[in-house]
Design a protein around this nucleic acid. Structure first.
Lengths: 322, 322
DNA sequence: TCTCATGTTGCAAACGTTTCCTTTATTATA
DNA sequence: TATAATAAAGGAAACGTTTGCAACATGAGA
């Protein structure tokens, strides 16, 4: 491997001069600098990230921690993050799996964005305590080294219930998410509060885990107990799609017998029939904002400790007037 | 930051002894080792990845290069990779974006798996030339430092055309993929060869780019020229889903007027109505195999230079007898 | 008692940078 | 012309590890 040393030798200057030249420091004259740069290119010099980060104590890399990539909305989310970060000279890498947790403390990454309910809060706190910078998107944490960007789950869930009620539904069923998920808990809580406002509504809860399969299972349960049209709020779109799949094999029709609304507005929701009603929010903005807060934390700039992402209702033929 | 030096001081031994102890070398006695380990834990010692990789010239990290995360099959693919890699003490990180190309030459990663048509072959070749290890999943390359795992696109495309022909279709339309994609080119080539075997078949090509939107566009075109039932081979499932969406707004029925078969068997293909006929292959195995070949390359073990992933036909109600 | 093998630990160089501080050369000022 | 100020380049330490080799202690065999 050709190093700064080789360049120095070739150029007949000291390694410090080479380093300054390579970093565009004004301490070295234009001519020497140009000569050094030329030699570097000629020798095919590539800096060693390890050496640099050992010395500078930074890597210019941000890690985003995800549980499973399969989820459908990561595309836009990551896009939003990458744009913001690369504008500021940072790279984004996606980390997954227990072992990659060590990337933060071992300083392979300068900061982390967390969207992984399996990452323990206790562990995150100890990182923050050591001085590492974090942004959490899936829980609430209070620490000077941690910022948060959360969805307005409560508003979304309330919109969904109100929408069903407004369409005349008197029997409402919610398909829950996993307890481990902050979003699931918040959405459920808001649902419970919202239905209380409608004394005439019969309200039922069914377990779910945010995956398609549990949506199918929930569909089966609804089918078994079916007596009259029912409005179903699946706490995410993925389960709604599973439920579509279940009912496609039955004599019950979505938008007639079973009315479904989801949450997330993942891409395929626009592509299934009938169009799924859902709660929408900008994944791009969510990612961008998280990155921005993280950069502020790293650069010790002030920024609001926590931001909230707005949501809105998207109507769809999966919910019709009863 | 507490370093190996601090531990040495605390334990009253040299730093080399600490290093040996930390790495479980038999050169240091059990007692000293235990004492050192205890002190390390007590001081909350965390090794510096930078220092280690500077010295050892390895990071134990593999990078997978993807164009866009949005694609629907990455979940299982990455899962397959992670399993194989973590069994061997490696971590996987997902890299995306032009700037992250430098991770390989700067030795932030020990090797790379390429599934990103925008990564130039020339650039990959120069990395290989410098001694870096690569596995390509989206092109053919011949170099001692490069292995490849390709899909059996030809077999898949042939299966698709034969399936349509077998169902009595005499008018067959293929929705192409982007020229930049190796898979798209191979599939198209095989299609062209396959249709030649059926002299009675009317064959049409429509442009596409592997995204949903181009599937919709292709649907529109097919609709305009519609005279009789047509069999459509979308070169990937994503475009097929776009086409479903288009036809849901028309009077033409999928599986009756327009018969569609896709390629990839992405997850939602099982969830749309009617069930999409498609070409299936194990994404998990694809990822696992790619990782395995890369590890062999890194550990200088022998392995076949290139492997092929088998494909199979999945029938669906989107294609019926004409 | 001396030598030798064995087992345990320490020394110091090396990995490739960055950066503070010093040295040397050059020009301006008195 | 002597001195100060400025500009350019170099020296060397430091970042935190790993590892080849040297040093030392211990006990066994002669």
């Amino acid at each position: 491997m050709v190093s700064i040393k080789d360049i120095a030798k070739q150029a007949g200057v000291s390694i410090s001069t080479v380093s300054y030249a390579l970093n565009g420091s004004p301490k070295v004259t234009k001519e020497t600098s140009a000569r050094i740069l030329a030699i570097a290119k000629e020798l095919n010099y590539i800096p060693s990230a390890a050496a640099r980060s050992l010395k500078k104590r930074e890597t210019k890399i941000i890690g985003i921690y995800l549980t499973n990539y399969s989820g459908a909305f990561y595309g836009q989310l990551l896009q939003g993050m990458m744009e913001t970060l690369s504008e500021n000279g940072y790279e984004l890498i996606v980390c997954s799996g227990k072992e990659s947790h060590r990337f933060l403390p071992e300083r392979m990454i300068d900061g982390a964005i967390i969207l992984d309910a399996t990452y323990e809060t206790k562990e995150l706190l100890s990182h923050a305590e050591r001085g590492h910078k974090l942004v959490v998107m899936d829980r609430r944490m209070d620490h000077p080294n941690i910022s948060q960007v959360l969805l307005d789950n409560k508003a979304g869930a309330t919109l969904a219930i109100d929408y069903l009620a407004e369409k005349g539904h008197r029997k409402i069923c919610v398909v829950k998410g996993p307890d481990i998920s902050f979003d699931a808990r918040q959405r459920l809580e808001a649902v419970q509060k919202a239905v209380q406002r409608y004394s005439h509504i019969e309200y039922i809860e069914i377990d779910g885990d945010f995956n398609k399969h549990s949506g199918e299972e929930a569909g089966k349960k609804i089918h078994q107990d079916f007596t009259e049209p029912v409005g179903v709020f699946c706490l995410n779109d993925e389960m709604a799609i599973g439920m579509y799949n279940y009912f496609s094999r039955t004599n019950l029709r979505i938008g007639e017998d079973v009315h479904i609304i989801g949450f997330d507005n993942i891409e395929v929701s626009q592509y299934i029939q009938p169009r799924l009603a859902t709660i929408n929010y900008s994944k791009h903005k969510w990612g961008a904002l998280a990155s921005e807060l993280l950069l502020n934390l790293i650069q010790k700039k002030q920024s609001p400790e926590h931001e909230r992402i707005n949501v809105s209702l998207i109507e769809g033929d999966s919910v019709r007037k009863r």
